[in-house]
Structures are given as structure tokens and as C-alpha cells.
Write a protein that binds this DNA or RNA. Structure first.
Lengths: 354, 354
DNA sequence: TGAAATCGGTGTAACGATGCACTGACCATA
DNA sequence: TATGGTCAGTGCATCGTTACACCGATTTCA
């Protein structure tokens, strides 16, 4: 089965390869209808599919979207990667998968390699405050879509962000706990230098103070200062937080806002280690609403990110803007998160724990 | 920043492009050491990286590994995809991700498209009994590694399988429950036409009968006959199974072997809906040992698949055999699964449930 | 009616890497 | 000194597509 090339199509249609190429690339301005149909039938009869490598070599671009996530092993990123692939498929693109392990240096290397390999659109899931590490590639024309990281003031103009409003998310989560009567609410998060973390934390602070309470009075957990920890370890962070926060029961929270569901689930596991019951003893709320939130016992209250919609937006920004050369600034999107109340959050216990 | 090509390197090293190409492709048989070093320094000084597209166009191959999983959204496949990417990176390959949604037609299309795009090695995660749908591509020379699907008698010779021994897994899981005193053990699975399911089921049957019991006496659940259901829906399967099996409490099992952890977790969720407690009331065991098994409440007993090792094996089979043109039959691997006992399996309750 | 404009396409030289067939220099043998 | 053989490296056509420059035929318009 030798490859069917554009020459075969040209011959079958009785035109020159150039004309077929013009047809394929929508430069049909000057082309009589009959020619068009002859080419169309020739293509379908021969089952012609353009050779990607040749195309890429010629114009220095791929139809591939790069997807850089912290780790597909994490259920949230796995689910997102899935949605991205589905959305990209619908637009006729493939997805090249890269795990950054939340390492800025790997992020940079991946982005640079993808660029050099002709990938012109990348969906970068990062939560680094600055994009300096990839700014040179952006300057050369990379269409970068950041996900789960709202646009920052210093971002290059061409960068588009698809994200939920983490500040609102933090507020909604915290307000929910406040409404349940909690007044001792801890914020649990691992990674420090993340824009998400700070936005969610700010939302948490805002809600606390709006309720007339003081953040300073809340139980604090400073987090594991490990410079290097992946995404799968998020659960470990939660578990450690539970251990530490309840080391001194007098000063322990009655409710916890976790930075994401994995950390929340780890926290629940930690509570279990201590003989405490989620919901009854301590309310826990997470972020993301991964599939396991609903499966958990008790089902986890969470701030949902609409990943299907977000993946579609990200892919269409990456691909469609990537195709036309317009310097259209593109549109960053800040979606409203949605609170999904389940059973891990309950009214504050009437009697203080023993 | 114009691209550095092999010509630039050649010029800098004072040789012809052909010589540089020879160097790059390890055809250094006849090449004096001085030339070699001149080329080496030229490459590193100029920061030369070969152009993938040109290479691919020239020899019709990519250095990319195709990875076809049912859905990266499923935590097990997400974790596996992660390990594959890590292993591929170590060998200098990228990974092209495809979700088959367990649809044979999509599987076929993806495999064919990857092949036509020059991908010569594919890790296919399927559980279809036959590989007929991709046999034409295999015949043309595709290096196919199947994962989580043991080699079948009718498979083409060149196909390599990396899998655990599912039969043993089924036995180990069931034997564990038998040891705990259970005599009413159900097998819960969704997909019907899967080689995994049948192997695990056979293991289950073997263990039951080895204990002097009869499979016919066990509570049966025929499964949802949906022709089409994805991988993420696995949890739904478990939940439905719980509902159905306990519809008639007199005839309900005291323990359950689930086809995988997602189904097991769904089953646990179903039990919870019914007011039953996992472990105390009903023992549940899953397969895969995904990260959430340990996080769950109660932590889930599971038959672990050593995915890191398996991913390494799969990638090395795919890439290293792919590189040399030997028709070395390659070696299928059947790893021993490992039982991880946690708290979702307990001794059979002394008193029958009300 | 003749010059220009338009129409519908075609010829050709790249894009960067590769590998076969070749060459010129040197050495050994007869 | 012919003859042949090895050594170290080179020339060139090629992979499939694309885009620019070009071309002959028809139409337009003053």
C-alpha cells in the first residue's frame, strides 16, 4: 500500500499538484466549480490524506496541540486531558501530552521543544505567577493558552487564560462553611508560589473578614515547604495537614477549605487516621469536583470547575487563533465556579470535641 | 532566531552535511576521531537539534510513541499514561495521546491514523479479544504493544503484551475473601467482551471451586448490557450493581470482587446509599490499586498492577524494538499481581444482616 | 480595435535530513 | 610502476507539500 500523494490526486483529477494544494488550503478564489468537484472526487476515491511531515517541513507548523499538565496521573488533570483530547479531535488536531511535574524548568523545556518541533499552540497548565520562563517563545509567535491560571498583569499580550475565578471560588467555599456556623476554618494548601493558591486564599480571607471574623484567629497550617512535590502527592499534603492541625485538639479547626479535591481527600484520610469523622466532626470542602468527590464516603462538597467547557474554550483559542495569523488579542475567560454541596460539610458540632 | 540546520553544523565543523548525518545516525564506522569531535563541538555550540519533520518525511517514521487508552479521565489510565510519558521521555520520545472510549472503531481509526502519520510504535490499551480490527496495520510493520490485555492465541506474532496475570489476580482476590470466611461472594463487572474480565472471572471461579463451593450458588449480577459505555462510567456500574444485588437482601452477597477499583468505589457508594457499611457489612475488593484506593474511607483492598514497571516495559518494547528492524518476536510479559489488603475487606459478619 | 485586466491555472524551487553511489588520496602487493 | 584495495568523506537525488512568479486565453473598456 504505497502512499497516495498529492500528485496522484492531481493526475486523477487532471490538474497540477499546485491546484490540488490550492484546493486543500482553501485558496479556491480562482477555481472553477468543475475543477473543485473533480479534485474532491479524486481525493475521496483515492483515499488521499495529506502527509503531515511534508506539510510541517514546508511551512514549519504542525496541526498538533501541545498539552502540558502537572501530571495526568492526577485525576483532575487526567479528566481535563481527556476533555482536551475530545475537543481537539473535533477540530481535527492531535494532542501531544507532557507532564511538567510542576517543575518550571521542565515546563520551559517542554514548551521550547514543542515550539522547535513546529507546535504553534500550547495549552499550558501552570500556576506559576510569571510566564518569564517561556516568554522568548511567546515573543516568537507561540499561541499560549494557560489553563487554571487567570491572566496576570505582566503576562504577554498574546497569552490567553481560561480559568475559573478562584477568588470567588474561595469565597463561595468559605461562605458555605460560615453559613453552617463554623467559625474556626483552616485553609490547607501545599504549593506556595501558585497564583491559584493565592487567589483562593484571598477569597477565603475575604469571606472570613466579611463575616466579621479575623483570619489571624483561624488555625494556621503553613504547609510542607518541600521545594519539589508533584501533583499526586497532593493527597499527602492533606494527610499531613490533618495530622499537624489536630496535634493540639484545643486549637483545631471545625472546618477546612482545601486547595483541591486530592488534598481534601488526603485530609479526610488524615482525619480518619485520627479517629475523626468527616462531616460530623470536621467539615471539609475541596476544589475541582473530580469524579471521586461524589464517590467518596462521605461524598465531598467541592467547588466545581466546568472542565468540559473550559477544555473546549482552551482548544478553540489555541487552534482557531493559531490558524489565522491575526494578532487578535484573543479573549481570556474567567468562569464562575459552582459550589456542589454534598455530605462532607455539616453544621458545626453543637458540643466541642472532647 | 532562524533554525540551525545540519548545513550550519557541517559548515562549522568543516565537513559535508552527509558526514554530519552519518555522525547523527551512528554510522561512524569510517570516521576519524578528530572529525567526530569537531562535529560534536559544532553541534553543541550551535545548539543544533535535528528537524523532526524533515527526518520523518525522509524516512517515513517518527520518534513518537502512540498511546491509546480507553480514557485518561479514568484515574487508572491517567496514572498509566503518566508513567508511559515518564518512561518515553527517558528514551527521548514524545507521546501522542488518544482516547478510544473503548470503542473498537475509534481504536481502529486511531491506530490507522497514527500509522499513516509515521508513528511506528503504539501502546494499545484494549481488552478486545481479537486484534483483527488493526491487523492490516500490524501486517505492514507496526510495532504494537498491548497493555492490560494478555497475549491471545490468535494474536499476530509480532504483537507484544504487557499485562498482569488476571487469572491469578482473580484467584488471589477471591481466596482472600474466602479466607475471611465469606461464602457468598459476587463478581461485579460491566464490560462483557473483555479478555480481562473473563480471565479475572475465571480466577474467581477457580478459587470458589477450589474451596469446594459452587459458582452457581453465588449471587449473580449480569451487568448492564449497555453496548456503549466509557471508562469513567465504571463507577456507575458498581453503584447499579449494589442496588440490584441488595434488592433482595436474603440473597445478597457478604463480599464482592469488583472488576476494577472504580467499579469497586462505585459499589461502595451504592452500599452507602443503602445504608450499609463497607467492611463491616460487606467486604469489597477491587483491581488496579489506584491512588484513591488508599485514600478511600475505608481504604480499599485491591489487587495491584505494577504500572510503573509495566509502563517501562511497554515503552521499551515499543521503542527499542521499533528502532532496530529485527523481526525479533519480542517478549510478552505476564506479571504477577500483588494483593494489597486494606480495610474494605473484613471477616464475614457473625450475625446475618437484618 | 488594441491595450490592459482578469481568470484559471501551472512550473519550480525550496523546506531539512538521508543514504546510496561515488571519488580522490593513500597504501600494499606483484 | 601498474593494479587493486581500503579509507574517509562527499554529491546529489529524494521524501510530499507549498507559494510565488509566471503564462496563455478570454474579457473589458476607452
Amino acid at each position: 500500500m504505497a502512499r497516495v500523494t498529492i500528485q496522484h490526486v492531481a493526475q486523477a483529477a487532471g490538474v497540477s499538484p499546485s491546484t490540488v494544494s490550492n484546493f486543500l488550503n482553501d485558496r479556491q478564489g480562482r477555481m472553477v466549480a468543475a475543477t473543485r468537484t473533480r479534485i474532491e472526487t479524486a481525493i475521496s476515491e483515492l483515499g488521499y490524506r495529506p502527509n503531515r511531515a511534508a506539510r510541517q517541513l514546508r511551512n514549519g507548523k504542525t496541526q498538533t496541540v501541545g498539552l502540558v499538565v502537572p501530571s495526568v496521573g492526577n485525576p483532575f488533570w487526567g479528566a481535563f486531558a481527556h476533555e482536551v483530547e475530545v475537543a481537539a479531535l473535533a477540530l481535527g488536531c492531535s494532542v501531544l501530552l507532557c507532564n511538567s511535574e510542576r517543575d518550571p524548568e521542565r515546563e520551559r523545556r517542554y514548551v521550547e521543544e514543542l515550539w522547535e518541533d513546529g507546535v504553534r499552540s500550547i495549552i499550558l497548565c501552570t500556576s506559576l505567577p510569571s510566564l518569564d520562563h517561556v516568554s522568548n517563545v511567546i515573543a516568537e509567535g507561540l499561541r499560549l493558552v494557560t489553563f487554571d491560571r487567570p491572566a496576570q498583569p505582566n503576562d504577554p499580550e498574546s497569552v490567553v487564560s481560561i480559568s475559573i475565578d478562584n477568588n470567588v471560588g474561595g469565597q463561595v467555599a468559605t461562605a458555605h462553611l460560615l453559613e453552617l456556623g463554623h467559625t474556626s476554618i483552616a485553609f490547607v494548601s501545599g504549593s506556595i508560589r501558585s497564583v491559584n493558591r493565592s487567589a483562593r486564599y484571598r477569597g477565603y480571607c475575604d469571606a472570613i473578614e466579611a463575616a466579621g471574623l479575623s483570619v489571624a484567629d483561624m488555625p494556621q497550617w503553613t504547609g510542607m515547604d518541600a521545594a519539589h512535590f508533584g501533583d499526586v502527592e497532593a493527597a499527602e499534603v492533606g494527610r499531613a495537614a490533618a495530622r499537624d492541625l489536630f496535634a493540639d485538639p484545643k486549637n483545631a479547626p471545625t472546618a477546612v477549605v482545601a486547595i483541591n479535591d486530592m488534598t481534601a481527600l488526603g485530609f479526610c484520610r488524615g482525619l480518619r487516621d485520627l479517629g475523626l469523622k468527616v462531616g460530623r466532626d470536621v467539615s471539609v470542602i475541596g476544589f475541582d469536583d473530580i469524579i471521586l468527590a461524589d464517590l467518596y464516603d462521605p461524598p465531598l462538597t467541592s467547588v466545581r470547575q466546568p472542565i468540559t467547557r473550559m477544555a473546549q474554550l482552551a482548544v478553540s483559542e489555541a487552534v482557531e487563533r493559531g490558524s489565522n495569523e491575526s494578532t487578535d488579542p484573543g479573549s481570556s475567560v474567567l468562569l464562575r465556579p459552582e459550589l456542589v454541596v454534598r455530605e462532607s460539610t455539616e453544621h458545626v458540632p453543637a458540643t466541642p470535641r472532647p
